[in-house]
Design a binder for these strands. Structure first.
Length: 576
RNA sequence: GAGGGCGUAGCUCAGCUGGAUAGAGCAUCCGCCUUCUAAGCGGACGGUCGCAGGUUCGAAUCCUGCCGUCCUCGCCA
C-alpha cells in the first residue's frame, strides 16, 4: 500500500473534474500534529488560474474528491491547505491485509534487469574501510531491488589486474619455491604487499624480475597466469570471508574483475576509432568531450589508450558498460563508488552513449558516496596514520559490543553473549553508515554508534526483541485472525507508519539511498515504543478485543521491522 | 583557473518534487520502574537553516553573486 499514490490518484481525478487536469498534485505527509496524516497543498497554486480565492478552491476540491472510504475527515486550514485525516477503520483494514500478506501489502514493480556494481576491492591488498560504504550501501540497495521484483545482477568489479601484480607475483613465486603454501603466504595481504614493496625498492634485481612478471602476465604466459590465479583466488576468499562477516550477499560467482575485460580492450578502442569517437592526440587515443568543455570552448579530454599502447581504467569501464548492456541485457546500471570518481563516470557515460555501447533508454546511475572520516574530521586512519583493515574494524566492533554487554546485568550464557555481540557490533557499524545520506562524508564514531541510544542498530534490535518478548509472554493466547481496532492516537500513528513502508522502499530503489529506509525503521520503532508505553497489552485490565487487536499491531510491527532490517542486512535477535 | 559536493541546535545528522510554529538523537536539566525488557517513555533547554540579493501568495528547499571548506580536472584506479 502506497498511501501517497492512492491520494494523488484521487486528487488527480478531483482536479480533472474541476477542469484542472494538468495542475500539479502536491500531496505530502503532514508535518504538524493535529493536521491529519497527509495534506493536499495544491489549492493555493490554482488561485490565479481559476480566478478564485484559495480557500474557495480548496472547498471545491474537498467537495469533488472521493475519499469517503480512506479519510474520516478533510479540513481546510490556513491559506488553503487540505488536511487529510485517515479513517481508523481504513487503516485497520489495510493493516489486516498487510498481516495476511508475506509481501506486507507491497506489490512488486515491473521487473527490470538491473546491474549493480559495488564493493570492488583491490585484490592486491586487504579490504579496508574505504570499501565498507560501497559494499554495504550497494548490498542494501540490491536487496531492496530484489524485493521489489527486479532481476539484479551483482557485478563485483574487483581490481585484479595491473602492474602492481608484477612484484606480488615475483614475491609469491619465491615464497612457493621455499615450500610455503599460498594460503599461508597470503594470510595477511597487507604484510605481503609491504614485503614485496620493500624488496622492489631495495633488493638488487627484484624490480627487474617484477617488471618481467608484468610482461609475462600481460603476454598470457601460462605459468605466470597460474601464479596470478592462485593469488587472486586466495585474495577473493579473503573478501568473501569479510562479506560473510558483514552479512552481505556477495559471492565468488559475482566477481567480474577488471581482468575479465582484458581481451576486449583493443576492440573497444578500435571500435571508438572506427566510429570517429576517439582520435589520436599526442600519441594517445582520446575522446574530446565538447559536452564538458570549459568556458573557452576547450573540450574535456578522456584518454582511452596511453601513448605507449597501454589501457586505462577508462577503457575497462567502457568494456564493462558494453558487456553489461549487450551481454547482460542491463536496463539499468547502478555503480557505487566514492564521490571522487564522479567526473570519470560522467565522462564514461557520455562516451558510451556516443559510441552506442549503451541503449538510449538504458539508465546509467553513478551512486557516489562521501569519505569516512575520523572523529577529528580527517580521513579515518589508525593511530599511526595507516589504513584501517576492514576485518580489524569489524573485530573491534564485536569486541566493543561484547564489553558493553558484559557491563549489563543479564543471565545469558557466554555463547549467547558472543552471538549477541556479533549481531550488535556488526549491525552497529553497518547501520551507522547506512543511516547517513550516502552522498556526503560522514564521521565514524564508536561511541555514537554503540551508545545503543537514538537512531542506531541496537535501538532497532531492542525494539524488535521487545515485540518478540510480548509473544513469548502471550504464548498460545494469540489470535492471528483477530480484528484490528484503531482507537488511541498512538495506535493510529503506528498503523499509519506501518502503511508507509512501501513509500520508503520505493524511494530507496529509485534514489539508491538506504538511509531513507533507516529513517523509516527508526521512526517506526520509535512509534512502537510510544504505543507500547501508552497502550497496555497483556496487563490484567485490558479487554480481550483490545489485547488481540494490539497484538496484531505488534505482529505487523515485528514483521515490518524484521523485514526492513533484513533488507539492510542487519540481524535481529529474539532476546537481548 | 575551470567544474562538482558540502555549509541546518554545543556535537552527530534528517528534512531540500517550495507549503503552516525547521525536526531527531547525543550532551545538559526535570520527571516516570512492588517490572507486558527503563538499551525505554514524557518534559525542558537549545537554530539570523554560511552571507546578500532574486523568483513566489509562500524559500532551509529553486535562481544569481559572494564567503568558508573538501574533492576533481589528458596518459594511477
Amino acid at each position: 500500500m502506497n498511501i501517497q499514490h492512492l491520494l494523488i490518484a484521487r486528487f488527480q481525478a478531483a482536479l480533472a473534474s474541476l477542469d484542472a487536469a494538468d495542475a500539479p498534485v502536491p500531496v505530502s505527509k503532514s508535518t504538524r500534529p493535529g493536521c491529519g496524516e497527509y495534506q493536499f497543498n495544491g489549492a493555493m497554486g490554482l488561485a490565479k488560474k481559476l480566478q478564485k480565492a484559495p480557500r474557495d478552491i480548496a472547498q471545491m476540491i474537498v467537495d469533488a474528491v472521493a475519499l469517503d472510504d480512506v479519510a474520516e475527515q478533510l479540513e481546510i486550514a490556513g491559506p488553503g491547505f487540505i488536511n487529510i485525516h485517515l479513517a481508523p477503520k481504513w487503516l485497520a483494514q489495510q493493516s489486516q491485509i498487510s498481516l495476511a500478506d508475506p509481501r506486507l501489502n507491497i506489490p512488486p514493480q515491473p521487473a527490470q534487469n538491473i546491474v549493480v556494481d559495488y564493493s570492488a576491492p583491490n585484490l592486491a591488498k586487504e579490504m579496508h574501510v574505504g570499501h565498507l560504504r560501497s559494499t554495504i550501501i550497494g548490498d542494501g540497495v540490491v536487496k531492496a531491488l530484489e524485493f521489489m521484483g527486479h532481476n539484479v545482477i551483482r557485478q563485483n568489479h574487483m581490481g585484479d589486474w595491473g602492474t602492481q601484480f608484477g612484484m606480488l607475483l615475483a614475491h609469491l613465486n619465491d615464497k612457493l619455491a621455499a615450500n610455503e603454501v599460498a594460503e599461508t603466504a597470503l594470510s595477511d595481504l597487507e604484510d605481503f604487499y609491504r614485503q614485496a614493496k620493500v624488496r622492489f625498492d631495495e633488493e638488487e634485481g627484484f624490480a627487474e624480475r617484477a617488471r618481467e612478471y608484468v610482461v609475462r602476465l600481460q603476454g598470457g604466459d601460462a605459468e605466470c597466469l597460474a601464479l596470478w590465479q592462485n593469488f587472486i583466488d586466495v585474495s577473493i576468499q579473503h573478501s568473501v570471508d569479510v562479506y560473510e562477516k558483514l552479512n552481505v550477499s556477495l559471492q565468488t560467482s559475482d566477481v567480474m574483475g577488471e581482468s575479465a575485460y582484458n581481451a576486449d580492450l583493443a576492440n573497444v578502442v578500435a571500435d571508438l576509432k572506427e566510429q570517429g569517437v576517439a582520435v589520436e592526440d599526442q600519441g594517445a587515443q582520446v575522446v574530446f568531450l565538447d559536452e564538458l568543455a570549459d568556458k573557452n570552448g576547450k573540450p574535456a579530454v578522456y584518454i582511452v589508450q596511453k601513448s605507449g599502447g597501454g589501457y586505462l581504467y577508462a577503457t575497462t569501464d567502457l568494456a564493462a558498460i558494453r558487456y553489461r548492456s549487450q551481454q547482460l541485457n542491463a536496463q539499468r546500471t547502478l555503480i557505487f563508488t566514492d564521490a571522487r570518481q564522479a567526473l570519470h563516470f560522467k565522462q564514461t557515460e557520455i562516451v558510451a552513449r556516443k559510441a552506442g555501447f549503451i541503449g538510449a533508454d538504458e539508465e546509467y546511475q553513478h551512486c557516489p558516496f562521501g569519505m569516512m572520516l575520523g572523529k577529528d574530521g580527517k580521513p579515518f586512519k589508525t593511530r599511526t596514520g595507516g589504513t584501517v583493515k576492514l576485518v580489524d574494524l569489524l573485530d573491534e566492533a564485536v569486541d566493543r559490543a561484547q564489553t558493553l554487554l558484559n557491563q549489563r546485568d543479564n543471565d545469558f550464557s557466554a555463547d549467547e553473549l558472543a552471538t549477541m555481540a556479533q549481531k550488535i557490533g556488526i549491525g552497529a557499524v553497518k547501520y551507522a553508515d547506512l543511516s547517513k545520506a550516502r552522498t556526503t562524508d560522514y564521521i565514524f564514531d564508536w561511541d555514537t554508534m554503540l551508545s545503543f541510544e537514538g537512531n542506531t542498530a541496537p535501538y532497532l534490535q531492542y525494539a524488535y526483541t521487545r515485540i518478540q518478548s510480548i509473544f513469548v509472554k502471550a504464548g498460545a493466547d494469540v489470535d492471528t485472525q483477530a480484528e484490528i481496532n484503531i482507537a488511541a492516537d498512538q495506535e493510529k500513528a503506528l498503523a499509519t507508519k506501518l502503511l508507509q513502508y512501501q513509500e520508503a522502499i520505493e524511494t530507496v530503489v529509485t534514489e539508491a539511498t538506504p538511509h531513507v529506509l533507516c529513517t523509516y525503521l527508526y521512526e517506526l520503532a520509535s512509534l512502537y515504543m510510544k504505543f507500547y508505553e501508552a497502550c497496555p497489552i497483556l496487563k490484567e485490565d485490558v479487554a480481550e478485543a483490545d489485547k488481540q487487536s494490539r497484538l496484531q499491531l505488534c505482529r505487523l510491527t515485528g514483521n515490518t521491522l524484521g523485514h526492513g532490517l533484513s533488507l539492510l542486512g542487519i540481524d535481529t535477535l529474539e532476546r537481548m
